[in-house]
Design a binder for these strands. Structure first.
Lengths: 204, 204
DNA sequence: GTCTATATGGCGATAGAC
DNA sequence: GTCTATCGCCATATAGAC
């Protein structure tokens, strides 16, 4: 009943649009390039999504929705603080290594169109209070030193995300444009970032 | 002799172009908008800079040149590691607070046109080896724990830059879109980032 | 649903008067 | 050096045949 062609094409469009938008951003992306990558023509893009703007918003919401909830996993686990942080950092770096354009894409677009954000955050069911409360509990229990939990969260995110967002720059400055070496460096950071954070917050 | 009009206009163009390019990026910027902000018309832009591309490159090199050398200041000081790190973090966060669009602008453009980078880095006289050597010395002296110096440098940069690049997102998630509160939070990070790093690397 | 052809507008760039 | 007017292209979007 539901026609196969439609579903197939819509999927192809979404995949192609995500690739192009994430690499080029809203301003740099071209409908023609998306059509080419999807193996169809421009007119069909407008048949499925009325405008470039609507196609972009569909992609942005989808991409954003896949990235954000991961943060919450930290709060809903019964493991030790060491294990929770380690698992989160490893998982997050892993996702970003496979999608190195993602961080910069999101950063750029939230500057370009900040209105999109507020509504999405509210609708996402994201509960940052839970993570804050979790870290606060660890501090009250004397497991980690007292500090603003928001600082701790943002520090972990910074250490995980920024080195991948700045890859083109860092690989030139510190690795003489050797992409492979830099990828290995990032891979090692799954361990070294965890150590760096734990050294900072654990009470010895 | 040297005509005043020219110098005045060129300055106005450069200021306007920097504002627009840094906010909108190469793809999103419009020559008309730059002309408006400079109080002139489009034709004059092309009279001073032959093309949008050339104007953009002038801006990018200028902006990049103002940001990068700061990193070197860490290496060429006789102060203690605590003071060097503290001064660098405070100075860097200060610059970025006044230019909150800068980090994302640079990140986006180095992804869009990575070729521009390599040449600029070489010509800039930037010597990352000096900073690496400085940290290595501190480790050999037993002042800070042993680790890859590049990790330490990139960690400090991450903690300083990312929270400002991600401001539109973080202020919504953790501060309920209250920009003023988030600015105060960043201001406090001049201290808390230093503490976070020192707790991690100092040998007690 | 999918295509070709075309309308429509906007943008970078240039011509030419002053 | 600065302006107005305009060219030519390219990108989004639509019309209409199949």
């Amino acid at each position: 009943m539901t026609n196969i062609k439609k579903d197939n094409t819509e999927e192809k469009i979404l995949t192609a649009a995500q690739n192009v938008f994430v690499r080029k951003g809203m301003d740099g992306a071209r409908m023609q390039e998306i059509a080419d990558e999807a193996g169809i023509n421009k007119a069909l893009l407008h048949y499925y999504f009325r405008s470039k703007q609507q196609l972009f918003e569909a992609i942005f919401k989808s991409v954003f929705g896949k990235i954000m909830p991961n943060i919450m996993l930290m709060a809903t686990s019964e493991k030790s603080i060491e294990e929770k942080l380690g698992a989160f950092i490893e998982n997050y770096i892993d996702i970003l290594m496979k999608n190195p354009f993602l961080p910069t894409f999101i950063l750029k677009e939230i500057h370009r169109a900040p209105e999109l954000l507020a509504g999405m955050i509210k609708g996402s069911g994201l509960q940052p209070e839970l993570i804050i409360a979790m870290f606060k509990q660890e501090m009250d229990n004397g497991n980690i030193r007292k500090m603003d939990p928001r600082d701790l969260i943002i520090n972990v995110l910074s250490l995980s995300i920024f080195p991948i967002a700045a890859k083109p720059l860092m690989s030139v400055v510190f690795f003489d444009t050797d992409q492979k070496n830099y990828n290995e460096f990032i891979e090692r950071r799954k361990v070294t970032v965890k150590e760096f954070v734990l050294h900072s917050i654990l009470i010895k």
